[in-house]
Design a protein around this nucleic acid. Structure first.
Lengths: 150, 150
DNA sequence: TACAATGATTGTTCTCATACAATCATTTCA
DNA sequence: TGAAATGATTGTATGAGAACAATCATTGTA
């Protein structure tokens, strides 16, 4: 594997095109989501992280690239809205665990509705192209789950 | 063309997967860009809009989904940093035109560098898959430029 | 065992983003 | 022609976001 100077090749162009397409199609998604949910965007980000399972406040802060006080403030707010619940960590008395409530999950479902505007351009593709895209995306997902082969 | 009840089909799944992939891979892009440029993100958005050509303050405000005072504040800041220039509109004495400077373009180039981190998963795809992706994305672009056939 | 490190919490300060008010000059149009 | 609308500007108020300080209880380890 020669370490040639990286040059703007097809993968880069493809990625940039993909990014531009997704960003353009989503429009001002942040605003849409905050309008739809009435929540500051950081709260959505927190709920998203918690959707995958309970976390400590510290892990949540790390995951959101924020600091502990900010995570505490966010969870205080979400807890007061009934969107998360906080309880002692079973193995570490310094820590708390936070998990998303059913109401919180409903908020995330609402955000999915905002997101799920599949662009007409994609719908116009042939079934074969869609199938190919799915295959490629499955490949991408598989690679991301087992990058150890690099 | 029957108007069946929309159902979660392949295009929707593909789109959602694409969106998730792009968003996950870009990570916290906003923070990266603001860190790299030292500018609030709204300034980046303004520069991006102006990159396509001079605009009035009103058009800029509309494009950014913000109001006139906010656009004025943003441009005041950018102008003071030498990243944009403001001048009278040739045909309407109420209006001003704003255009990006060379320094402003250099800032946008810097943001592109932040963005251009093509995920390893994409680089690992075969040349054939990359080529297919390019073909499909070209199709998408063509559709977006001529949606009148819908 | 004692001290350093950790995790959560409350708080302060500052900047940014947003909504809105007010004003003035200019343009539009009935 | 005059009034309404428009475009830009300065300003106020509020919430959000970020950085940091301080504190306390708990855990880890030399």
């Amino acid at each position: 594997m020669s370490k040639a100077v990286p040059k703007q090749g097809d993968p880069d162009i493809v990625w940039q095109t993909l990014v531009a397409w997704v960003m353009d199609s989503r429009g001002d998604w942040r605003r849409k989501v905050t309008d739809a949910t009435g929540l500051p965007f950081s709260r959505i980000r927190a709920l998203k992280r918690l959707g995958a399972g309970p976390m400590t406040l510290k892990d949540l802060a790390d995951a959101m690239s924020t600091d502990a006080p900010a995570a505490t403030v966010a969870i205080n707010d979400l807890e007061s809205r009934g969107l998360v619940e906080r309880y002692p960590h079973p193995e570490n008395r310094r820590a708390k665990l936070v998990s998303i409530t059913a109401a919180g999950r409903r908020v995330m479902t609402a955000t999915h509705r905002v997101v799920e505007t599949t662009p007409p351009a994609l719908r116009s593709l042939s079934a074969a192209d869609i199938k190919t895209l799915r295959r490629i995306l499955d490949k991408v997902a598989a690679h991301q789950e087992s990058p150890a082969e690099d």
